[in-house]
Deep mutational scan, measured.
Amino acid sequence: MPSETPQAEVGPTGCPHRSGPHSAKGSLEKGSPEDKEAKEPLWIRPDAPSRCTWQLGRPASESPHHHTAPAKSPKILPDILKKIGDTPMVRINKIGKKFGLKCELLAKCEFFNAGGSVKDRISLRMIEDAERDGTLKPGDTIIEPTSGNTGIGLALAAAVRGYRCIIVMPEKMSSEKVDVLRALGAEIVRTPTNARFDSPESHVGVAWRLKNEIPNSHILDQYRNASNPLAHYDTTADEILQQCDGKLDMLVASVGTGGTITGIARKLKEKCPGCRIIGVDPEGSILAEPEELNQTEQTTYEVEGIGYDFIPTVLDRTVVDKWFKSNDEEAFTFARMLIAQEGLLCGGSAGSTVAVAVKAAQELQEGQRCVVILPDSVRNYMTKFLSDRWMLQKGFLKEEDLTEKKPWWWHLRVQELGLSAPLTVLPTITCGHTIEILREKGFDQAPVVDEAGVILGMVTLGNMLSSLLAGKVQPSDQVGKVIYKQFKQIRLTDTLGRLSHILEMDHFALVV
């Protein structure tokens, strides 16, 4: 994948999101292997301009796509893939009243899908469409860049269908997702969380590099694949309309690839034109409109599966009536509230959605109805927002919020430890010299600072030695090549209790 991002070429006709291997024109390309080798690009942008032909009021008969309808489940399912879809609609009884809503608040519980998330729908649909058009064949390999849930859905379907599955996901995604993927037989590649989507090191860039190296491999490409919004247009939206008897006044959905909100909203605009569509985008993402909503100094966020630093091709923002931004604290607070007060075992993005819903639905009156999409299960986040310690460490809970008995030293300040200034190293000294210094002084790690004293990161003896043994660096290389740029900081005025929580999850903390 090139470091400079080429513009994806656009073909003359058809839909841009065809499933299957992508040609340089962004659509299915038939021909000899030699032709494909000559024409197939190194990668295709996940934010390529959409060429979708959908228009409100256009006859369904003019759609270029294969459409399906929700099917009634048999008493005995032939395999677990038949437990994807037909998820329950559940009334939220307490939270709406707590925040003064007059309307009825309903939750579409997508964590009841077989793999635990709304992404099971698009995973199965992308595979079925690729099999139907002859792209996927027995023994082929599926590769997908994902925040985890699409990966789980694909790995689940691949396990049943017999495909090899490789999932490329950023490091910030939970260990629970990784464990589930491994249990399903998927191979996992992790990428830096802070890598831009168009960087060769991003999950998108690495996935395309693997595709170019592995024979008979395919990126189904949830960011561009029409099967993504079509899955929701054909099934999720129809289920909502049936469950609500066609009567709903507002739908609120958090947005990642945009397939969920695009597919549902398009069908609702056709069948229930008075329904307002509300999009939820986390602070630090750029999906919301108008652009002024996205202006923030924050560039990272903890909530998973929603928000991006690019506009995915499948996201149709014209069908969203209003956007709201959400933050991590309210997302996790509301997710825990949904679990504790409503018994809905949902993930953090569901918290984002409901946090926005109780604001947006203030305009609705008694007798009206708001539906929220709860995308995934708490299963993926047992060591994250479900953990009091994690919430404390991230600053989303305060010590006084917890009532468990603490040891005698818990409320003492870090400054009472009488710490001395640490050994520091410059980023320009060599790895070999740094190892000598650390061994001589008896230290395992040291902060790396520039000549102005600005902290650049941390270097550890173990990481340097393993990097040297693996051949990633040489003793003569500058130590700046092996620094940890993500590390926890703590102030002298913070409590030892807070430091204790940090050290339970990290090997060190830097006192500043």
Rank of each mutant, 00 (worst) to 15 (best):
S3L: 15
V10A: 09
G11M: 03
C15T: 09
P16R: 02
H17F: 07
S23I: 12
G26H: 07
G26S: 10
S27P: 08
K36Q: 13
E37S: 15
A38D: 12
A38G: 13
A38V: 13
L42R: 14
L42E: 10
P49A: 10
R58H: 15
S61A: 13
P70N: 11
P70S: 13
P78E: 06
P78W: 06
L81W: 03
K83H: 10
I84E: 08
G85Y: 03
D86E: 13
M89R: 05
M89Y: 05
R91C: 02
I92K: 04
I95A: 03
K102Q: 15
C103Y: 01
E110F: 02
A114V: 08
G115A: 13
S117H: 04
V118C: 07
D120Y: 06
S123Q: 08
S123V: 02
M126S: 02
M126F: 05
I127A: 10
I127M: 07
E128V: 15
T135P: 05
T135I: 05
K137Y: 07
P138A: 06
P138V: 08
I142D: 01
T146D: 02
N149D: 05
N149E: 03
I152M: 07
L154R: 00
A155Y: 02
L156R: 01
A157V: 09
A158P: 02
A159Q: 08
R161A: 08
Y163L: 03
Y163W: 02
Y163D: 01
V168Y: 04
M173Q: 06
S175A: 10
S175M: 03
V178W: 05
V178P: 07
I188L: 08
V189Y: 07
T191E: 01
P192C: 09
F197S: 06
D198C: 09
P200C: 03
H203R: 05
A207T: 07
A207E: 01
K211C: 04
N212K: 12
N212H: 04
N216P: 06
N216R: 06
S217A: 06
I219S: 08
D221F: 08
A226I: 09
A226N: 10
N228F: 00
P229G: 04
P229R: 01
A231Q: 07
T236S: 09
E239R: 01
L248Y: 02
M250I: 10
G256I: 00
T260I: 08
T260K: 02
G263N: 01
E270W: 03
R276S: 05
